[in-house]
């Protein structure tokens, strides 16, 4: 048997905010994998469609959006077929939405476990962020099929993916950072003040309307565009379209700003979450 390294664990009241147990997270990587598996299995077990649900919801949403916004309200889609436009926007938005919603309940939702066992408290939200990627994979596949269909019916389709497609994982990473930061912050605040449990769904609802999911950024008057772009989700969603459809305007300055904001949100979120996680079982 291999000799385990001598471990010395000191337990005392800490006061810092940014203490992160990296070694602990690495040691518990198996748990992260198993939690991802658990999320996936328990989500789709005993459903008839199984993982196909990850396809059904965005497609139905895209169809409804296409009808309401495309046909009735006639919101233009930058010359892209509406179905592609919405699916592409939803791809990023859904991931962001699900990850933020999922992690915003981390502390209260895991009280039963957190009050009985210690493991690095970031394990569960990381697992949530990772397991939501499974749905993303399925949705990407759908998007590919819809794109192929669009290409067959309109061979002169202007929307073409760029080589930047290869950077797609980085875009998801960006969304994950932002969603984790926001989710953890909400989770910590909610654990302390119940009032905030109503905030997350409401906030996300509003956020979707100020994010160019159902309309292109180009529809916003030039004068107000900066206002829309300081919403850190907006440049990322635009980037998804720029990369996948090669149409949307992509402004590196706004994107860089979004990246900075996301990093800050993550820092504050993780810090506050870790701080609260240290003794939240005492008063939850």
């Amino acid at each position: 048997m291999n000799q385990p390294e001598p471990i010395e664990l000191r337990i005392r009241a800490r006061s810092g905010w940014l203490w992160l147990d990296w070694r602990g997270l690495v040691a518990y990587r198996d748990l992260i994998v198993l939690l991802v598996r658990r999320d996936f299995v328990s989500k789709y077990k005993q459903t008839i469609l199984g993982p196909a649900w990850a396809v059904v919801t965005p497609i139905v949403t895209a169809v409804v959006f296409g009808f309401v916004f495309g046909r009735v309200l006639r919101v233009p889609t930058d010359g892209v077929p509406p179905s592609l436009f919405y699916l592409c926007g939803l791809l990023g938005w859904n991931y962001f939405n699900q990850t933020l919603t999922g992690t915003s309940n981390t502390l209260r939702g895991n009280y039963a476990i957190f009050s009985k066992v210690y493991f690095p408290r970031l394990v569960t939200p990381l697992a949530t962020a990772l397991s939501n990627l499974a749905a993303v994979g399925v949705q990407l596949l759908t998007l590919g099929l819809v794109y192929a269909a669009a290409l067959v019916s309109t061979p002169a389709l202007a929307a073409r993916p760029t080589w930047w497609v290869l950077a797609l994982p980085l875009l998801f990473l960006h969304l994950a950072i932002l969603a984790l930061g926001g989710g953890l912050l909400l989770s910590a605040v909610t654990a302390k003040y119940r009032d905030f449990q109503h905030v997350a769904p409401f906030l996300l609802n509003l956020l979707m309307y100020v994010t160019p999911v159902i309309y292109p950024m180009s529809q916003i008057p030039e004068k107000w565009r900066w206002l829309a772009a300081i919403n850190p989700v907006a440049p990322v969603i635009e980037a998804f379209r720029a990369v996948l459809l090669g149409t949307a305007s992509f402004d590196p300055a706004y994107y860089a700003l979004s990246l900075a904001v996301s990093a800050a949100v993550l820092l504050v979120g993780v810090g506050y979450y870790q701080r609260l996680a240290r003794d939240f079982v005492d008063y939850a």
């Binding site: 010395e8 337990i11 005392r12 009241a13």
Partner: peptide, 11 residues
């Protein structure tokens, strides 16, 4: 699972 208010434990 929770932190002490003061004092220390070494394991």
């Amino acid at each position: 699972i929770t932190e002490p208010t003061s004092g220390e434990a070494v394991l």
